[in-house]
Amino acid sequence: MTYWSRRLLGALAVLFAVLALNFALFRLMPGDPVTSLVDPRFSPEAKEALSRAYGLDRPLGEQFLLYLKQTVTFDFGLSFVSGRPVWQELRDRLPHTVALSGSALVLAGTMGTALGVAAARRRGGAVERVVLAAGALSFSFPSFFLQLLLLLAFAVLWPLFPLRGSVSVPAPQGAAFIADYLHHLALPVLSLALLGFGSWALYVRNLMVKILGSEPLFLARAKGLPEPVLLWRHAFRTALPPLLTLILLSLPGLLSGAVITETVFSLHGVGRFLLESIQGQDYPAAGGAFYLLALVTVTSNVLADLAYGLADPRIRVDRRKGQ
């Protein structure tokens, strides 16, 4: 099997496992599955009809197949709370969550990489101390605490940014809407980036220290190459594939961060939807949101794997085996 087909199969396996887990979570919980999937406030006839729709009167195997079919077609049922299809609710919110996590990832990644490289280049310097401290803090600072502090500082005491929401009410039109949206997004993204860049910088630093001390870099230095060429063309290019792995590894955490961030800042997004669904015991909605978050993670894992393969010639090019 080639690298690619192996990775793809792995991703499919994870996806299937997520599906199975989701199925089991909401059906094997304590109590009657009917109450967990059908709103208890419905009339008996409505309950009947709904449990038939979910196949709750059929054997478990058949239920699973039905569930598979529904989930793969994004048919998560109706939300108990709004009565709208869960998928519509999610589709409205997904872009916001992606915008939040995506821009935080880009910002934290850029900051972390720049600082990590700088720290590795000047061992024992001020930048290195900053990186080490930021790294330790990013493993011990609860995201919501930092966010609450930022809110207190920049939304209450010194009101530069809005306290809550994704857009102002009422929302402005046209270009002003985009500006307003970004204004609301700024503090959440900044907080996620502040939390994320430390561990990123620490990782980059450790990786670069190792690479800068390795034999290829010794030879490159013997070649009389200028410092930037050594640093970026040789060292950083070598570090790139594992860095892409780091993206892969940081995505689940980032989504977890998004759930909390959306809650703290009252943003419109999948994470807060999940929380509200769980709190409101809106099980179809919670199941759909969880599945969607897991799906985003699995998809980005596949993409990161792909990027890793493309960045590392040892995987991309394998002529001797005739690929």
């Binding site: 689940p252 989504l255 977890s256 909390i260 999940l274 993670t297 894992n301």
Partner: peptide, 10 residues
């Protein structure tokens, strides 16, 4: 590979 917090929340 799963997002831990959403899982824990559920």
């Amino acid at each position: 590979a799963l997002p831990l917090l959403p899982l824990l929340m559920v």
